[in-house]
Structure formats: structure tokens, C-alpha cells
Design a protein around this nucleic acid. Structure first.
Lengths: 204, 204, 204, 204
DNA sequence: GATGAATGAGCCTTCATTCAT
DNA sequence: AATGAATGAAGGCTCATTCAT
């Protein structure tokens, strides 16, 4: 019989995750100490280690939740549209928006997610695949409607898309290029769709 | 009268930079200490600080040289071709090749260059612009030949391209997707060129 | 009216002591945490502190029980013999056997018991005296039979014996010298008995 | 060309070792922190790690020097005597004296040396062998003079002796039994010598 | 110019112990 | 009685950077 309700424990967990998100986003993974996170969460240092094995595990979780939130939005919103252009445009818009709305996490995500995804047991790989699946559904739909030739290599397509979005978002966040989310998203969607329109399977 | 000739100093500088490149690439920025670099370069710890203000400055320089080497190759080789497709394909190929040939620096570059580019006084921004210029020349050439409509936003185009290449290279380096440099480069070039064929100026 | 019967409480106490013995022996005092003990005993961390004031007290108790078990065996088995040589040989054999059979506790005992015996309130001193008494009985018997001269300093004799056994056992446990319990015991008994045969009281 | 003379470095090393001896002896290995040692030595925390890889290595060195000092004394003084009884008596006296004169180190030695000797690369084993060699020389001399039968197992003999001395010294240091170094040493020497007088080779 | 000894702040992590439930 | 969440002090260790020589 737990003396402390499951909700309470959930709250603690969530408040730690939130704090970690804020602190890591604000100071960067390297510069932010576990003590910083604990203080921001209003708990003791030691408690962090009851919920997360170590700093790495905490960051991983933060990034994972960010990624999951993004994916959930993507899947839901993309499904609302039926035209290929709208689906892809929506996906790009949401992705850009997610990054722009949470620039700190965005920075963290971009600079850590690839490294994190290498850690054994990391779920980031699974999320990457999930992202690919969203794209795949769009591409397959387009192929069925003969809007693009069948057989496009989805991972290559995903890398092109994902990479471009990342770059765009990053530069915006860092004060480089102003972003017009809606129109930029449409341009990118247009370029990529036109680009693959007549392209057949290119890679296994 | 300097006790040590300018050339000698240049040599020292270069050997430090080389050592830093090797060490940072091999162990990662975080795990590599200044002492590691000094040892690899065969100089004392203290000497590093005569040539570079701090660790950050040293890394910046390493990345900058890597970027510069890449750009020099790009500019030279791209200029050899006259067909748009060949120019773009060459650019992509060289970029991928640079990353694949030096996976350690590639990793460093990808995970640090954007951060580095924020540091005041960093020259990375200038190199980004130089990269943009290479692209711009290709795009303008294409526009003149009416292969694409005039006015494509080159920075957006660059981000798409650069981001995609980065992602592709990263995943290859980390054992994800096998890379077929030549064909992959051509596919990407094809997609992007087709994509922008009918697209007019979209952003400032 | 106690909610928990006295027996139940005894069971708890004993299961904690058993767990502590296992855990401390397996991991060493330093490396074993109270949480480890609690888990092994199947109780909560907090409960340990109802039965023992702190970690030190718990270890003391574990060692004490080990020592007591050893003494009980010694007293019982030694009494079965009437020849001095057999009495001493048996004592040594049992002592060695106890250590060799429980190498973990043996290690703990050797490296902690002397420290523990300093703690105020520790009963280890009393057990030392009890050990001395066993020896004394043997020595006195021998004196009566004129096998040794009267007046041997029993504590000195005990230290010699105890120390030698400890060393022998320790080195065996740590893979140093192979132990042949029976013959080694007899050799030691022989040396010491012959050694004190003609020795008169030396110290108060 | 070292900027700091080798002597200076030696001084530092020695002052750290001395401080470590003092601090570990006074507070116990566990309770003494590296910071304590650094403070006592008047150096920074970090410097300790320039001279010793870690805490363990520092303790090892302290114990080793203590042991070496003891052995040097033993070897030198024992050689001065020709009668077996005097040789053994001297050895025991010096050993007891060493422990009694430095009770802190003695405690450290007794409670740590056996553990330390297990560490790979520890020199304690070598010192143990050296101690055995001193004994062996005495025993062999005695055997030649027909004072004892040839073939006594020197390691068993050493354990008996060493263990007894340890116990005696320990109890004295902890306020147990008063020690009369000279006479106790002679008693022990007498017991052991008489004990082995007629004993032939007993173990490999 | 060069050295490398020295610094010392700072960080992650552990764990005995407490106490609200 | 029993739980186990929570605490928080403490400690070993690293390493960028400085500075006397």
C-alpha cells in the first residue's frame, strides 16, 4: 500500500521532467547541473535519482516526450487532410511550429537527439521510425493517386525533410532567418512533392 | 626580433590544430581534454593558450578549417561543370564524401557547428554565407537557362540541401543507412532540381 | 496488546540479521547498503531502524552472532575431549572451519571485529573473554596434569592462537595458501603446546 | 627542463604522503576525505591526483612505506644477532614497537593491509614475501644449528607470529592489555622456538 | 617563448537516516 | 507497526585555466 498516492508520484515525476526541460533548454545540457534541475523542480538532489538513473536518462526522457508530443500532433493533424500537398504542408508546419514554440527544447533536441539515439535502449530510434511511418503513409497515398511514382525511398525523403526543417528552425531560433511558417512550409512541401513527382524507387 | 620565426609559429599552430582535429574527432568534444590535445600535439598544456584563448576558440578554429576545406573543394569542383544537374550533383557528392571520409570531424561538425556559429566573433556565419553563394551561383545559372524559375530563396534551398546531407551523413556514420554516395547524390539533386523547376521567388 | 506477536517480532529480527549476514558477507560492509539488506530481508528500509539503531549496530549484531555460534561450537566440542592435544587441536580445527565455511563473514569478522570491539556497548569484548575462558580451561587442565607449567598468560596465548588462525584463514580465503584444516590445526596445536610446555607464568 | 626542481617535487610527494599517513591514521581510511589530506598537506585537492591516481593508490603507498620502514629495521637489527633466540626476540620486539609507536598507522595497517594486498599491482605481496624471507633466514639458521628440525613451513610460522603480534599490538593500542614489549617479545619467541624445536617439515 | 605544476570550482552520484502517512 | 518517499550532506574526481620559473 503506497503511502503516497500514485498521482502524487506522477506529479513529482512530471514536475521533475518539466523542470529538466526548462533548465536544460535554458542553459544547455552541459551547463545545466542536476542540482539546477532539482532546485527548479523544488525537490532535493537525491530525489532525481529515484526517478531517473542518471542525468543522461533524464535528458533522454525529456527529449522523448518532446518528440512524442510532436509526433502525436503530426499524426493527428495530418490525418485530417486528404490532399497530399495539405498533408505534407501540415506536417512541415507543425514540425516548424513545434521547434519555434519551444526554442530551448528545439536546440536541445537538435544537438542531442542524434547522440541520444545511439544510446542502447534509447527509444529515439523507435520514434524516428514512427516519424518515417507518417511520411510513408503520405507518400504511399500519393503513389496510389499517381501523384508520385511508386517506390520512393522514404528514409532518404525523411532525411531531406527532417534535415531541412531542422536547419530552418535552428537558424530562425538563433536569429538568422525570419520564418514564415505557413508559407515556408508550403514552399518546402511544394519543392519536395514536385521533386519526387516523377521519381521512381531509388534505393532498397 | 622574434626568437621564433613566423614559419615556426605557423607550424606550431598547425600542429595544434591538427592534433585538436584528431583528438576531438576521436573522443568527442566533451570527452577530449586540452591536455589530450597538448599531448597529441607534443606541446605543453600552457602553450595551447598562447595560440587559442580557450577550448571553445580552438574547436571553432578546427571546425572552421574543416568547413573551409570543404568549401574550397566545392567551389573548385562545381566550377568544372556546366550542366546544372552536374553542378548540384557534384556539390552533394563532395559534401557527403567529406563527411564520410572524416566521420569524427563530421560528428563534431554536426553537433557543434550550429552552436559554434552563435558565438560572437565566430566565422562560421561567414562560411555559411559562402556556401549559400555557391548554391546561388548554380541556381542563378539555372534561372538564366530557364531551367528553373527565377527567384528561388537560396537560403531556404541551402537549408533543405544542407540539412538533408547532414542527416544522411550522420545516419551513415552511425551505422544506420548505407550510403551510396554517387547515386544518392544524384537522387537528391534530381529531387531538388525538379522540385524547384517551376517555383518562383518565395522569400526575400 | 501488541499487534504483532513476540514470535513474529523475533522472526523479523532474525530474518533481518540473516539478510544482513548474507549481504554484508557478499558485498562487504562498505559496499552493502541498508537498502540492500532491507530488500534481501523483504522488509522496508525504515523497518531496519526499528530493530537496529543504525548500520553499525546491525553489523555488530551480525558479527556477534557469528562469534557466538563459533564459541558455542568450540565449547561443546572441546569438552568432548580429555587429552590436551585433542582439545586444542579441536579448537583450532573448528575455528579454521568456521572461517573457511563462511568466507564472507570471515572477511567481515576479521576486518571489522576489532574496530567493532571498540564501540561502546559492544559485546565483542565479552565474547573475547569467553574465548579466553575456553583456552584457560584447556591450559589449566594441562597445568594440572603437569603437561605445561602453571601460570601461562592466557591472553597472550589466546592472541597468538587467534591471530595465527586469522591469518591462516584469511590467506586461504583470499586464494593464498591452501589450507589443510586437520593437519594444519594439529601442527599449530603441537607448536604451541610444545612451546608452552616448560614455560611458567609470565604475566599477570 | 623542469621548472620545478626534482627535489621540490619530491618534497611535495613526501608532504602528501606524510599528511595522508597522519590523516588516515587519525580518522580512519573511510572517514578521512581526500580534501582532509589535501588540507593537512597544504595543497589543493586536485594536486593529490597528480601524484596518486586515486585514494586507494595513496593509501597503498602510505601502507607500503610503513611496511617497508618496518622491514628495513627488522632486517638490519636482526642481522646484528647471532643467537636464534635473540634474532627472533629482536624481530618481535621491533614489530611490536613499530605498531605501538604509530598506533594510527598500525590500525590502518591491520585493517587495510590484507585488503590492499589483494589489489592487482599492489606491492604488499612482495613485502609479505620479504618478511617471510627474514623469518626463513632465522629458521634456516636454527635448523643448521640443530636447534630446530629442518623443514618447518615458514609461511605457517610467519602467520602464527605475525598474527599474534598483530593481536597483541592491536589490543594494546585499543587500551586492552598492557604491553611489556621486551618481556612479551621474549615469551613469544620462547614459545615459538620451543614449539618448533622438534617439529619437522609439515607442509609443502 | 615554453613549460607543467598547481589550482579550485564544480559536478554527479550515493546512501544512511528520517518522518509523513 | 510498517512503509518508502524524501532528504541533503558529503565525497571522489576532472579539467580548463593560470602563472612562477
Amino acid at each position: 500500500m503506497p503511502r503516497i498516492s500514485a498521482e502524487r508520484k506522477q506529479d513529482r515525476l512530471q514536475s521533475i521532467l518539466d523542470a529538466a526541460g526548462r533548465v536544460f533548454a535554458a542553459k544547455g545540457l552541459q551547463a545545466a547541473s542536476m542540482a539546477d534541475v532539482a532546485q527548479d523542480a523544488g525537490v532535493s538532489d537525491g530525489l532525481l535519482y529515484r526517478y531517473f538513473e542518471n542525468k543522461r536518462a533524464l535528458v533522454d526522457q525529456v527529449l522523448q516526450e518532446f518528440y512524442e508530443r510532436l509526433l502525436a500532433r503530426l499524426e493527428k493533424e495530418v490525418a485530417r487532410h486528404s490532399r497530399i500537398e495539405d498533408q505534407l504542408g501540415t506536417l512541415i508546419q507543425l514540425h516548424l511550429k513545434a521547434f519555434v514554440e519551444e526554442p530551448g527544447l528545439c536546440r536541445l533536441f537538435i544537438s542531442e537527439v542524434r547522440v541520444a539515439s545511439n544510446y542502447p535502449g534509447s527509444n529515439i530510434q523507435a520514434l524516428n521510425r514512427r516519424y518515417t511511418r507518417v511520411l510513408l503513409r503520405i507518400v504511399d497515398g500519393a503513389a496510389k493517386k499517381r501523384q508520385i511514382k511508386a517506390g520512393l525511398d522514404a528514409t532518404l525523403f525523411r532525411d531531406l525533410l527532417f534535415g531541412g526543417i531542422e536547419h530552418l528552425a535552428w537558424r530562425h531560433v538563433n536569429g538568422g532567418r525570419r520564418l514564415n511558417i505557413e508559407s515556408d512550409a508550403n514552399v518546402i512541401a511544394g519543392i519536395l512533392l514536385d521533386g519526387v513527382k516523377n521519381r521512381s524507387r531509388t534505393l532498397g
